[in-house]
Design a binder for these strands. Structure first.
Length: 905
RNA sequence: GCGGGCGUGGCGGAAUUGGUAGACGCACCGGACUUAAAAUCCGUUGGGAGGCGACUCCCGUGCCGGUUCAAGUCCGGCCGCCCGCACCA
């Protein structure tokens, strides 16, 4: 007999000590490899559920991160019990700027700080009971992983898009015209480079000389860096990926995906497909022609000027002596502007070049301008100005007093008609054509503009003056970064001007050690300092070469990581084709919506290339996508709208908050968790107070996974309260189980299993928790069989895995509970057990009462019962046509639900 | 400007293809147990009116209208909020 020491609380069989219990089962799972997933065997039902893997930051996880991780964990555990072979891995998107900045300041190698951060993340994930198969862990910054990132890069580099076949093919399959061959190997290289999926191009970037680095558009404000240093747009030679070749397929294949409509729409928008016509305007007095792109070729008659982007190759070409200096100054000034300064709100500006172009249809001469509202990389970088029917052209024409010539009539009864026809107002809506200027055979006055558009396009194509094209907003992907902590780009530039990728057997090309992570001060990454690494000599020919110093962008590793998880230790292939095929696409992918047009687009692009090159068996990587909602914390706001940290505010009275330093009354608001607001909550804190199971249950019960919500740690107490009830309930029944269930319990159990299974299949985890609570409400204090108890423990298990394991073991089950089968329930059995149901009687849709009847009562009985009830309430029921009395039965079960009588009297 | 989403009690949120609005929980209030507190348990709670009473009636899902035997759900028009993308010719 054990003796309880004075002052110590008795640790009875009945107490729920979550800390000890959760420690026990964490160790058990690790020791017995419970979460390990084998390669699928033939005939296995497979399920691949994936989280967007995190960048392991120094701060560790806060409570917002696991929203998605918990949802996928619950689904993975459920699917496993339901008989699927489940892949549910985790890894690290571990290349990135924060680790490099940290290294700049401290000299600590990014690999070292990253490794430490990963340990923290793993410890926290283990704490929460996330059942990842850690034997499949990968990190994008490790050579055995980025070897294959580099491998894929070289395959993309050595491929071209065969527009006729509609797919990528190896560059060797590209036919080289004889004249190109004859011109030598550099000519051949140039010919291939124009078609490769990876290519070099000189493109304008935001270059900050003071910081010695390129900045993203988002990092440039009013032409200055965040620190106030000047930023210029300079053309730099960049590695790019030809994602635009896949624009059409990236749009088309969205249709088959089970993704949130908003994300699909974002991608469609980003790719920005539009159908139009390119046509060329001859420049008067020269041999040049200016190509323009328009979606509204019907307005060709209204062209009163042409405008070229400052970056247009011909922008400075036509300026005559009087205008040259002004044009060059304008182009120079435009180059200094950031994209931000050239946005919508900015005033339209431009300069006249002194040259004129001729309208190919009307023969009319129009002035040629250079204007920075014209984007260099959309369409042809030149627009035909139609001020009467385009708001931007209208603003420009008004400013420079150019003609405004309407060609579309708003319609006889439109109030703005006179102003539009007088050229005083811009008209962009529907209308019919005015008589065509010049060639009157083009179209008739009065035809709809859409018809005129086709007629003019036909005419231009027939005359060879233009052709229909599809244009996209999507730009090719600038793939080079001047940073250290990324995958080295495995390209060597040889002294004879040729360029090759590293042979695949020499991969990985690992990062060299360098002495300083600081920027180089010119447009090269710190890798340029590693001279031993940089300079190479071909052992066969003795030719010298220099490695590419740029590294890949952070998105590279995440473009294919979901494939590597299938076969993470394979040294001979990025993934074994059979294993790749056995798992197929990711069945459920959960992560934040911020990746809509970044990671999710890039990964789809790489996947399609890999599909074309025969590495994967599916067209798309992620079949179903769910965006988890943002979890916010709170902060306070004073009357001037300033956000204040939580630890500077006290609650004086109920709902009354005082800012301690100033004494002012402040308002409680929802706010993102951030260091500066001191409102970051870590899962460690919550688990220590309430346990991991309570954290899981509470987080899932808060609301739908997709919804945004506000975190309040104290509220976790209600989940703990529920779990304590579960504990008392189950241990109580185990002490004295009934031989048979009470009838209500038997029904409640069947309902529970049916409902929770459906909820899990549809990722409705909040109502799933509610089902567990409902069952408990129904079953407490009733006679419960051991069998029913075991059913309950099993459906509890995905949500509260630690407690479920413990209870399962105490109930005599063989651990782990996750080896047990998911319980089944028979809906028909449930129906058969129901003797009577409450039938609601309505009059005109309003509830008037209810009667107890057999679930399969016939219409006649039901109608009579309804009328009898209403008659009893003194309603005039005589003469009600029976066919207008509606009987409603449950569509699934056939059980009668309600009877509606039309409004009486 | 364009696109996507959302408006339900004091709060988080439930409500199959239209069929009992407010499941489940939080908070509040009342009660039980306790010397007391904590914990636990029981009960009440959308608003209003009536009845001693188990109850009855009216109103109610952002606003206005429509379709229907029946509307939170469908249709049309507004209002408000959130999130993307934005000189894309």
């Amino acid at each position: 007999m054990s003796r309880i020491e004075p002052g110590k609380r008795a640790m009875t069989e009945q107490s729920y000590d979550f800390t000890a219990l959760e420690t026990k089962w964490r160790d058990f799972w690790d020791k017995h490899g419970v979460n390990k997933t084998p390669h699928p065997a033939p005939g296995d039902k497979t399920f691949y559920v994936l989280d967007m893997f995190p960048y392991p930051s120094g701060a560790g996880l806060h409570v917002g991160h696991p929203v998605g991780y918990l949802a996928t964990d619950i689904v993975a555990r459920y699917k496993k019990m339901a008989g699927y072979t489940v892949l549910h891995p985790m890894g690290w998107d571990s290349f990135g700027l924060p680790a490099e900045r940290y290294a700049e300041r401290t000299g600590v190698h990014p690999a070292v700080s990253t490794e430490k951060n990963i340990e923290t993340y793993k410890r926290q994930m283990r704490l929460l009971g996330l059942g990842y198969d850690w034997s499949r862990e990968i990190a994008t910054s490790k050579p055995d992983y980025y070897k294959w990132t580099q491998f894929i890069f070289t395959r993309l580099y050595n491929a071209f898009y065969d527009a006729e076949a509609g797919r990528a093919r190896p560059i060797d399959a590209l036919d080289i015209p004889d004249d190109v061959k004859a011109a030598g190997k550099l000519a051949v290289q140039e010919y291939q480079d124009e078609r490769r999926l990876v290519y070099y191009e000189t493109a304008p970037v935001n270059w900050c000389p003071e910081l010695g680095t390129i900045l993203a558009n988002e990092e440039v404000f009013d032409g200055k860096s965040e620190q106030g240093y000047e930023v210029v747009r300079v053309p730099l030679r960049q590695v790019k990926m030809r994602i635009t070749a896949y624009a059409e397929r990236l749009i088309a294949d969205l249709d088959g995906l089970d993704w949130p409509e908003g994300i699909k729409e974002s991608q469609r928008n980003w790719i920005g497909k539009s159908e139009g016509v390119t046509l060329s305007f001859p420049v008067a007095g020269t041999d040049h022609r200016i190509e323009t792109f328009t979606t509204r070729v019907d307005t060709l008659g209204g062209v009163t000027f042409l405008a070229l982007a400052p970056e247009h190759p011909l922008a400075a070409e036509f300026a005559d002596a009087d205008h040259r200096a002004e044009v060059e100054a304008y182009i120079e000034a435009a180059a200094r502007k950031s994209d931000l300064d050239r946005t919508v709100d900015a005033e339209k500006t431009g300069v006249f070049t002194g040259a004129e172009a001729e309208n190919p249809v009307t023969g009319k001469r129009v002035k040629i301008f250079v204007a920075d509202y014209v984007l260099p990389d959309y369409g042809t970088g030149a627009v035909m100005g139609v001020p009467a029917h385009d708001v931007r052209d209208f603003a420009f024409a008004t400013k420079y007093r150019l003609d405004i010539v309407p060609v579309i009539d708003p319609g006889a009864d439109h109030p703005d008609r006179a102003a539009v026809l007088a050229g005083e107002q811009c008209w962009t809506e529907d209308g019919v054509m005015l008589a065509p200027p010049g060639d009157s055979s083009l179209y008739q006055a009065g035809v709809r503009w859409r018809d005129a558009r086709e007629a003019v396009a036909d005419h231009l194509e027939a005359k060879g003056l233009g052709h229909r094209v599809t244009s996209y907003n999507l730009r090719d992907w600038i793939f080079a970064r001047q940073r250290y902590w990324g995958e080295p780009i495995p390209i060597v530039h040889w002294e004879d001007g040729t360029r090759t990728t590293l042979p695949e057997d020499q991969l990985p090309l690992t990062l060299p050690h360098i002495d300083s992570y600081k920027p180089t001060g010119h447009a090269e990454s710190p890798l340029a300092r590693a001279e031993d690494w940089l300079e190479v000599t071909d052992p066969q020919t003795g030719m010298k070469g220099r490695r590419e110093t740029s590294t890949m962008p952070q998105w590279a590793g995440s473009c294919w990581y979901y494939l590597r998880f299938k076969d993470p230790r394979n040294d001979n292939a990025l993934v074994d084709p059979e294993i790749e095929n056995a798992w197929g696409s990711v069945d459920l992918y959960v992560g934040g919506a911020e990746h809509a047009t970044l990671h999710l687009l890039y990964a789809r692009f790489w996947h399609k290339v890999l599909f074309d090159l025969g590495f994967v068996s599916t067209k798309e990587p992620f079949q179903k996508l769910v965006n988890q909602g943002l979890l916010t914390s709170h902060a306070f706001k004073n009357e001037r709208g300033i956000t204040l940290p939580v630890d500077e505010v006290e609650e004086r009275a109920e709902g009354e908050f005082i800012h301690t330093p100033t004494g002012e009354t402040v308002e409680k608001i929802g706010a993102k968790m951030s260091k500066s607001l001191h409102n970051v909550v870590t899962p460690d804190d919550v688990v220590a107070r309430f346990g991991a199971d309570a954290f899981r249950v509470h987080m899932m019960f808060m609301g739908p996974v997709e919804a945004m919500r506000e975190w309040e740690t104290d509220r976790t107490a209600s989940a703990l309260k529920f779990l304590r009830r579960v504990w008392r309930f189950v241990t109580g029944v185990l002490d004295s189980p009934a031989g048979e269930d009470a009838k209500t319990v038997r029904l409640a159990r069947t309902k529970l299993v049916l409902a929770i299974t459906e909820d899990l299949d549809n990722l409705r985890l909040n109502t799933g928790v509610a089902e567990l609570m409902k069952f408990l409400n129904a079953a407490e204090g009733e006679a419960i069989s051991k069998e029913t108890l075991e059913v309950f423990i099993r459906v509890l298990a995905p949500f509260a895995p630690f407690m479920a394991e413990e209870l399962w073991e105490r109930a005599g089950g063989q651990p782990s509970v996750f080896y047990a089968d998911w319980p089944e329930a028979d809906a028909a059995e449930l129906e058969a057990a129901i003797d009577t149901v409450e039938v609601v009687i309505q009059e005109g849709g309003k509830r008037r009462g209810a009667v107890e009847l057999a679930p399969d009562a016939d219409d006649e009985t039901l109608r009579a019962a309804a009328l009898a009830l209403l008659d009893g309430q003194g309603k005039p029921v005589t003469g009600v046509p029976l066919e207008r009395v509606i009987v409603v039965r449950d569509k699934k079960t056939g059980r009668v639900k309600l009877v509606n009588v039309p409004k009486l009297g």
